[in-house]
């Protein structure tokens, strides 16, 4: 049991990314990892699908803003319902606030009603650094061709106030909808807002 959990929590970013950042219009940094339920995940195997990467930290008030009232779960549900692969990533280092074990995170996600396809523990921070993930939340949308479509904030209302969710433009939903309609993504990059990733 313990060894399986360790396998789940081991995240290895694959070689081959020259940049230390995911940039809209460029190839998304490749990674291989194992989700908290033990399934292997490799970005290369997800070609042909839209992929959303969501950086998270359960203790962060900006994350709570979106999970408390069920906003993040609703977006996950809507997009995974359209065939989008949604991976939630936690890059908190061991000993840092928000670091979780696979078992604990699975329980939290169930309680929250997370509709993510998978949860990735990146305690070495390799995937986070490869993408330039800075905040929780920080979101990336990758197109079926493996190129980054969007990098940045969840929406246009930087705050910790859940009341701001209602009137906000959700950049992730917007990017996926525009790309699926064959249009260029109108807002491909924004400054993310949130707590710093606890590398």
């Amino acid at each position: 049991m313990k060894s399986m959990m360790l396998a789940c929590t081991f995240a290895a970013a694959a070689a081959g990314f020259a940049r230390a950042e995911a940039v809209p219009g460029q190839d998304a940094p490749a990674f291989k990892s194992t989700c908290t339920k033990g399934t292997a995940v490799a970005l290369a195997d997800l070609k042909g699908k839209y992929v959303v990467l969501e950086w998270t930290n359960p203790g962060c008030p900006f994350v709570k803003k979106h999970y408390g009232p069920g906003n993040m779960q609703a977006v996950q549900k809507e997009l995974t319902g359209q065939g989008v692969v949604w991976l939630t990533v936690n890059s908190a280092a061991p000993g840092k606030g928000g670091h979780v074990t696979a078992e604990r995170w699975n329980a939290v996600a169930k309680e929250q009603g997370s509709a993510a396809t998978g949860l990735l523990i990146d305690e070495s921070g390799e995937i986070g650094r490869a993408y330039g993930a800075k905040t929780t939340p920080h979101l990336f949308v990758i197109g079926p061709d493996g190129k980054v479509l969007y990098a940045g904030a969840i929406d246009d209302k930087p705050s910790t106030d859940a009341a701001d969710v209602a009137g906000a433009v959700n950049y992730v939903k917007q990017a996926v909808a525009e790309a699926k309609a064959g249009k260029p993504v109108s807002v491909p990059k924004t400054a993310p807002y949130g707590c710093g990733v606890k590398y």
Partner: peptide, 9 residues
């Protein structure tokens, strides 16, 4: 600050 930098508010 008014621009919080990479994280914060």
């Amino acid at each position: 600050w008014t621009n919080p930098g990479e994280a914060g508010l």
